[in-house]
Design a protein around this nucleic acid. Structure first.
Length: 942
RNA sequence: GCUGAAGUGGUGGAAUUGGUAGACACGUUGGACUUAAAAUCCAAUGUCCAUUAGGACGUACGGGUUCAAGUCCCGUCUUCAGUACCA
């Protein structure tokens, strides 16, 4: 009986599905463990071999944890709202729901054939109304919340209203808009309802405001900062421009400090924490107020170096700064306006690409130094960004290179305020190892002391205070797209109103086209039935809008990250109980948060930051009990493709085999890797008969070497255009899912990028065949009750130890080698003992679940191997009585010598020195020193 | 520029505390079986010198610490990833 992997794998995949083998229980005596995968977007292209890498790793861990006695939750679902399905809908008119449905089917089939232990009963889809009902619900909760800085958490908006009613807003310490006016309780009570709503909107955690957004004209929507890469859209690479629009925003900036602090509690790679820290961009310093001479205006700046305040020799405002027009003198007006116009024309991308050119214009105005009272010229320059800090800086050319370059370029004075530092060539930016000079009361102080003192003095004068700034901006939450969650919002006189929870979900309306309207409104503007009737609490036809009881609904939809910011909580609840809440309190308390999340590093900024934000908010409002979504995070490395090339001789139709290339007159051409065998040889007939590209090679002459055509190989990113995509379907068909799983792990460390080479899979496939033959031969099962030998036990227990350590350390590649070594040893030992071969199956089952289930059954078990207990490591089987000592001379190993482990040091030395090989090595010399480390090594020096 | 990670055979990679560098595979070469191929099995395989015995060199490069360094320290180079006028 040989190893028929196709039959075996189909059999057990059906068994697991039929028996719901991996269904998680919400009531269990076992400790819980929650393993989560990257939320897949079901794209039309399906999976390639790079995608399942993380899923295989997490599946191994989940299966291992079950063997270790844990109640494991390992769910899967789909992040099924998104741009590609909608772009396809625009092109073809097909409803994105249909495209999505089809793609999900393909994904499910592909995932199933790899043998994952997912609990599919808990599947979620972000685009299904029963799910997005709760995404809408969370949005409403955010709308109904504000952030109290005194308690450092979100609170219900009703508590804020109460304060307004009793005390006004003077004592409120909230994260809110900048343009807040002071009002008393009497004022508040006197305000109209609309005025009150306007004011509250400035405090809510999600708010409607006119903001500068990243508008992508080709996609017809705004994009978040993390959806833009190098100035163009992440999806499609389309240009992005700045535009002012009224949008929903999320006050994520309120959580900047907690998002930063929370990183300490997450177990993940330092690089990922660093990326998050960069994104949050905390800087500690001071805000300083400069009075403007001859104007009743002030310029507020943020600086991280208040200690260098005596080094200020000019100020720079962003060209967009709203004071510019007020303070510019008539003489400078023309220059300033020309500069502003020129800056506005330059795209964000130009400004980014060109950091070398120094430009700026003097406004003619002067500010007053808070201490010296000297006049300081005020300039504008595009190196100052309107969006960061206050959009204005105090320029200290001796301490900041950009200020220095600007001053040199425009011949501005560069006063030196550092003791004994030469600033004739460049600015001195370091904080340490220097004392402040020429700075009155700061003279002789170090950075730390001077900073403190400067802030103190500024505060005394009322011209500044200590301040912490964050780069993290509030997140724009509106998208002008069709295929996303609709907002549960309607408008009364232009003021947003929330639809009550009991009427959710607000379902996406039908539209006849998925494009923006002719008047530039989002696609939902095309819906005929998209108005809210406040009397019947139903969505009704637009022609019923009367602005007294029937109102227009919001036309934007939510961004992709809305649904993916909380899905991990939905999995905690069983489908039968999902009706009344996003998840029951019992389920939330039982599963807490994700113990292990494995995903790609592309989610290290956006998705992770947003979901951490929502989780913190939900914790504040008491909906959940945890402060972070993930306890441990691993980013798997990308699997790269190995492209194949044929070489066409220039001007001919001849293709030279790789070894025949002599000169440079050849063109390398990508060919599909499916026509390449394990020895880099081309299947010429296959290529010529290719449905898509065969005709390009119909008349080609392939010049062979040694009877075959050898292709060139090169490692590149796996992509359709490079013809190096390998489909897991083909691998499963040819070698089986167990081989695929083992091979993906065998390729190398999980977190490292590594190239895929299908040829190598024969190694792990051969291993599985050998394994099979260890259990089964032509006459059937070989395993018997023979007592295990000492060697058998030694091999088994060293394997148990190594595999267990490896899994705990996520070093899956090394345990595959360990299995190979174990099987090789058992074959050499002619092991047939059940006591050995049974535990070996359990060890291997997380990696190769199908073949181990099959052999487990053949051993006579009727329950799935996944219910078996992980074998226990026993040290006693590894205890040795002797050691094969390496004997080194001056650190170089020359020969080995078997000696008893209990031999004392001096005896070892005597034996080694008397050995004939030692005498030969020394060749008459007397050693200076002999190092003996019992159980390790012997080193003879001299 | 800054931050982070990493440089080991022809290839993917091992070496978990400083203690036999190259485990385990792929590929290559030779052999067995076969009419032949596939599959399977056996052997060799870091480089160089040597018929063998054996020797020299060897973990990006240059130094250092140590009886002993891929591993620790100092300096340099290269690659990849992230980020970029953040005051």
């Amino acid at each position: 009986m040989s190893y028929h992997f196709n039959e075996i794998e189909a059999k057990w995949q059906k068994y697991w599905a039929d028996n719901q083998t991996f269904k998680a229980e919400n009531n269990s005596d076992k400790p819980k463990y929650y393993v989560l995968d990257m939320f897949p977007y079901p794209s039309g292209a399906g999976l390639h071999v790079g995608h399942p890498l993380g899923y295989i790793a997490s599946d191994i861990y989940a299966r291992y944890k079950r063997h270790k006695g844990f109640n494991v939750l390992h769910p899967q679902g789909y992040d099924s709202f998104g741009l590609p399905a909608e772009q396809y809908a625009i092109q073809t008119g097909q409803h994105p729901a249909i495209t999505t449905q089809t793609n999900i089917k393909t994904y499910r089939r592909q995932l199933d054939q790899i043998g994952f232990s997912f609990d599919w009963s808990r599947e979620v889809r972000t685009s299904s109304p029963e799910y997005y009902k709760w995404t809408q619900w969370i949005f409403i909760q955010l709308f109904n919340s504000w952030f109290n800085k005194n308690t450092d958490q979100a609170e219900a908006i009703s508590t804020l209203v109460h304060v307004f009613e009793t005390k006004g807003n003077s004592e409120v310490n909230a994260v809110c808009d900048d343009d807040i006016i002071l009002f008393s309780s009497e004022d508040w009570i006197g305000f109209s309802s609309e005025e009150q709503q306007d004011l509250l909107l400035k405090y809510r955690l999600t708010y409607l405001a006119e903001t500068e957004v990243n508008w992508c004209p080709v996609l017809g929507t705004v994009l978040a900062n993390d959806e833009i890469v190098n100035g163009v859209s992440e999806r499609g690479g389309h240009p992005v421009i700045r535009k002012k629009m009224t949008q929903w925003s999320m006050r994520i900036s309120a959580y900047a400090e907690r998002l930063l602090q929370g990183l300490e509690t997450i177990d993940c790679a330092e690089s990922l924490k660093e990326t998050q820290r960069n994104w949050i961009g905390k800087s500690v310093g001071a805000s300083v107020t400069f009075n403007v001479n001859a104007h009743d205006e002030v310029i507020d700046v943020f600086t991280t170096r208040p200690d260098t305040i005596y080094g200020v020799s000019f100020m720079t405002l962003a060209p967009e700064h709203n004071l510019v027009s007020k303070i510019t003198t008539p003489e400078q007006k023309a220059d300033v306006e020309a500069y502003i116009e020129a800056t506005a024309k330059r795209s964000e991308r130009d400004r980014m690409a060109d950091v070398k050119t120094i430009s700026g214009v003097f406004t003619g105005a002067y500010a007053e130094h808070p201490f010296t009272k000297e006049p300081i010229p005020v300039w504008i320059g595009d190196y100052v960004l309107a969006g960061y800090g206050t959009g204005a800086v105090m320029s200290v050319p001796c301490g900041d290179q950009r200020d220095y370059d600007f001053a040199k370029h425009f011949n501005i004075d560069i006063p030196n305020i550092f003791e004994g530092v030469d600033i004739s060539e460049e600015a001195y930016g370091a904080k340490e190892n220097v004392k402040i000079a020429n700075s009155d009361f700061l003279n002789g102080m170090t950075y730390k002391k001077a900073t403190k003192r400067a802030i103190y003095e500024l505060e005394q004068m009322g011209q500044g205070e200590g301040k912490t700034n964050y780069r993290l901006r509030d997140a724009v939450f509106s998208r002008q797209r069709y295929w996303g969650e609709p907002f549960p919002v309607y408008y009364v006189n232009g003021k947003p109103q929330m639809i009550a929870q009991e009427h959710l979900p607000i379902q996406l309306p039908e539209v006849e086209k998925y494009l923006p309207t002719e008047t530039g409104e989002p696609p939902l503007g095309r819906a005929d039935v998209w108005a809210w009737d406040t009397e019947t609490n139903a969505i009704v036809s637009n022609d019923k809008i009367n602005h007294t009881s029937v109102f227009p609904l919001e036309l934007n939809t939510m961004p992709g990250w809305a649904g993916s910011s909380w899905y991990f909580f939905r999995y905690m609840e069983e489908v039968a109980n999902r009706e009344g809440d996003f998840a029951s309190e019992d389920a939330l308390n039982y599963w807490e948060n994700v113990d292990l999340y494995i995903g790609g590093s592309e989610h290290a900024t956006g998705h992770l930051l947003y979901s951490r934000f929502w989780v913190k908010f939900m914790k504040d409002r008491g909906f959940i009990a945890v402060d972070e979504p993930f306890k441990k995070l691993i980013n798997q490395g990308m699997i790269l493709g190995t492209s194949a090339f044929v070489y066409r001789e220039e001007g001919t139709n001849n293709y030279l085999s790789k070894g025949l290339i002599t000169d440079k007159h050849i063109h390398p051409i990508h060919v599909n890797v499916k026509y390449i065998n394990t020895s880099d040889e081309l299947d010429i007939e296959g290529l010529k008969n290719d449905k898509e590209f065969g005709k390009d090679f119909k008349n080609a002459e392939f010049i062979l070497e040694n009877g075959v055509y050898k292709v060139g190989r090169e490692v590149e990113k796996m992509s359709k255009s490079k013809f190096n995509v390998v489909n897991p379907d083909n691998i499963c068909e040819q070698y089986g899912a167990d081989s695929l799983r083992l091979y993906e792990m065998f390729l190398g460390p999980l977190e490292q990028a590594k190239p895929w080479k299908t040829a190598g899979i024969t190694g792990v496939h051969g291993f599985l065949k050998k394994l099979w033959k260890l259990y089964v031969d032509n006459d059937g099962l070989k395993v018997n009750d023979a007592a295990p030998s000492k060697d058998n036990l030694k091999t088994l227990h060293k394997t148990i130890k190594k595999v267990e350590d490896d899994i705990e350390n996520f070093s899956f590649n090394t345990s595959v080698s360990t299995f190979m070594i174990a099987v090789n040893e058992f074959i050499a030992q002619k092991c047939t003992s059940k006591d050995i071969l049974e535990p070996l199956l359990i060890l291997l089952s997380p990696y190769a679940p199908h073949v181990t289930e099959e052999l487990w059954e053949q051993l006579g078990y009727t329950q799935s191997i996944s219910t078996a207990t992980f074998p226990k490591f026993e040290d006693k089987h590894l205890v040795e009585s002797s050691k094969n000592y390496p004997i080194s001379f001056n650190g170089k190993m020359r020969f080995t010598l078997e000696l008893p482990l209990d031999m004392p040091k001096d005896e070892i030395e005597k034996t080694v020195m008397a050995h004939e090989k030692t005498i030969a090595q020394l060749d008459g010399r007397t050693p200076k020193k002999v190092i003996v480390v019992p159980g390790k090594i012997i080193n003879i020096v001299g």
